[in-house]
């Protein structure tokens, strides 16, 4: 089982590498390097703050876009091109295929985030001429961004297990946007009454809470992220991703492939 899972995951990663998906980090670094001098012109004190906000937000956005656009093709491409036929005719269970694909894309996104992190710290060093202890605290925000990738990949995989690539992309991106405002939704639920309250509360618990995974503003002001939040967010991301992937497996297990 492990051998089959790792084979599928590694092949997914290899596909992304050979399709030059990881080249986006070059674009990311170029974006930071090109905009860094502009930060200095705004204000010397704000330079670092803006670089962190722009850099980490771009890292999150780049990863989310890759997760969605690679994720929507993970299953549908294998069905359209019939490569799945030669996989399912082997001792590969359908859940192993889904789990392998998920792990492969998550691995791609983690490697991508590692490259982007290196590029980000390099730009920070060039701009500020030094790295301080406080800069290490930024890693918590980057870790949470990777957790966001785990969740959005699982959701994209879930949608692509029953929907067309375009609808999968729309659903996934919509959930990302809604999830980004999960905290506002929570406040709205608290203010609502009656059936509306129940409905909004239900939605709050159903959509991924990306706002809890966004601590960019906090770390850019050198406010440390607590260990309990790291633990809570890790558990949340793992459980949410596992539930979405399990739902994708349940749908895919019953699916007649054309």
């Amino acid at each position: 089982m492990i051998s089959r899972l790792s084979a599928i995951a590694f092949n997914t990663f290899r596909e992304a590498v050979r399709d030059r998906v990881l080249y986006n980090f070059v674009l990311f670094v170029l974006l930071l390097v090109a905009t860094a001098p502009l930060f200095g012109q705004i204000s010397i004190g704000l330079e670092r703050l803006i670089l962190i906000n722009v850099g980490l937000s771009a890292m999150s956005l780049f990863g989310i876009v890759i997760a969605i656009f690679v994720g929507i093709g993970l299953v549908s491409k294998e069905i359209d091109k019939k490569t799945l036929y030669t996989i399912l005719s082997r001792p590969v269970r359908r859940w192993e295929f889904i789990a392998g694909k998920y792990l492969g894309l998550v691995m791609t996104l983690a490697v991508n985030a590692t490259f982007m992190t290196a590029g980000f710290y390099l730009t920070l060093l060039v701009t500020a001429h030094q790295l301080t202890r406080a800069d290490a605290g930024l890693l918590a925000a980057i870790y949470f961004i990777i957790l966001q990738f785990f969740i959005i990949t699982a959701l994209t995989l879930l949608f692509s297990s029953f929907s067309t690539p375009i609808f999968s992309a729309i659903f996934s991106f919509a959930l990302f946007v809604i999830g980004t405002f999960a905290e506002d939704l929570r406040n709205f639920a608290a203010m609502s009454d009656g059936a509306g309250k129940w409905l909004v509360t239900g939605v709050v618990y159903l959509v991924p809470n990306f706002s809890a995974l966004n601590v960019i503003s906090q770390v850019s002001h050198d406010v440390p992220v607590s260990g309990s939040l790291i633990l809570y967010n890790t558990l949340y991301a793992v459980l949410y991703s596992a539930a979405a992937t399990a739902a994708a497996v349940l749908i895919f297990e019953r699916r007649n492939l054309k």
């Binding site: 092949n11 290899r14 596909e15 050979r18 399709d19 091109k81 019939k82 490569t83 036929y85 030669t86 005719s89 082997r90 001792p91 590969v92």
Partner: peptide
């Protein structure tokens, strides 16, 4: 399934491999 092999009609394989 270890004992069976399958070639689909007009197969496509991962062309990056």
């Amino acid at each position: 399934k270890k004992q069976i092999g399958f070639l689909p009609e007009q197969p496509y394989f991962y062309d990056y491999l």
